[in-house]
C-alpha cells in the first residue's frame, strides 16, 4: 500500500476489449449506430480520419441523444473541415434543438473558407433566427469581409434582434467609417430602448476617447 513504484509491476493500463467492428470506414459507420454511447463516441472520434464520413456524421447528429457522442461528432467535423461539413451543418441552424444549433455555429465559425461564400445566403434568410446565427458565425469567422457583412446587416436588416446582434459584434470589430450607419439605426427603431443602448455602447467602443 502507498505509492506504487516505477519498478514494481504496474497494472496494465488498458483492459482488452472485444472488437465488434472493423476499424475501416464501413466498420466505423456501422459502429456509429451501436446501442452503446461509448462505442458510438469512439466511432465518431475515429471517423475524423475519413472525409467521406461527413454526411453520415451530420445525419447522426440529428438523431443522436447522447451529448458526449454529439460533442465527438462536432469535434470530428471540425477536424475534417471541408465544404461538405459546412453544407451538412447549416441545416441544423433551423432545427428545434438549441444544443445542435449552437454546436453548429461553433464549428462553422472555424471554417472561413467553406463558410465565406455561404454567408450572403444565410444573411438573406427569411427566418430572423437563422440571420442571427449567421451573425453569430461572423463573430468569430476569420474572414476579412466579416465586418463588412455585419455592417450590411446593420444597414438593411429589418429585425431588431438581428440588427442589435450585429451591432454587438461591431462593438468589437467596427471601424470609424461605420459610425454613421450604426448611428442611423436609432432612427429606424425609435421606440426600442435597447437599440439606443446598443448603438451608444458600440459607438463608445469604436470611437473611444482618443
Amino acid at each position: 500500500m502507498g505509492l506504487v513504484k516505477r519498478a514494481e509491476h504496474r497494472a496494465a493500463p488498458s483492459r482488452p476489449h472485444i472488437r465488434k467492428y472493423g476499424r475501416d470506414l464501413q466498420g466505423l459507420l456501422a459502429q456509429l449506430h451501436d446501442d452503446q454511447a461509448k462505442a458510438r463516441r469512439w466511432a465518431a472520434r475515429d471517423l475524423a480520419a475519413h472525409t467521406e464520413a461527413v454526411s453520415a456524421l451530420c445525419e447522426r447528429l440529428q438523431v443522436e441523444p447522447d451529448p458526449t457522442v454529439r460533442e465527438a461528432i462536432f469535434g470530428s467535423l471540425l477536424t475534417i473541415g471541408t465544404e461538405a461539413v459546412a453544407e451538412g451543418l447549416i441545416p441544423l441552424l433551423r432545427g428545434e434543438d438549441a444544443g445542435l444549433r449552437n454546436g453548429a455555429v461553433e464549428i462553422l465559425q472555424q471554417l472561413p473558407d467553406a463558410v465565406g461564400h455561404r454567408i450572403a445566403a444565410l444573411l438573406a434568410d427569411s427566418d430572423p433566427d437563422v440571420r442571427i446565427f449567421a451573425v453569430d458565425i461572423l463573430q468569430d469567422l476569420a474572414h476579412p469581409d466579416a465586418p463588412a457583412w455585419m455592417l450590411a446587416v446593420v444597414e438593411a436588416d429589418e429585425h431588431v434582434n438581428v440588427v442589435t446582434t450585429a451591432i454587438d459584434r461591431l462593438a468589437e470589430v467596427g471601424t470609424p467609417e461605420m459610425v454613421p450607419a450604426i448611428q442611423a439605426v436609432k432612427d429606424r427603431f425609435p421606440n426600442e430602448p435597447f437599440v439606443g443602448f446598443a448603438v451608444d455602447t458600440a459607438l463608445k467602443r469604436i470611437l473611444g476617447n482618443g
Partner: peptide
C-alpha cells in the same frame, strides 16, 4: 439567454 456556445440556456 437561450443560444450560447458550449452550453445553451435550456441545458
Amino acid at each position: 439567454d437561450v443560444n450560447m456556445p458550449k452550453m445553451d440556456g435550456y441545458t
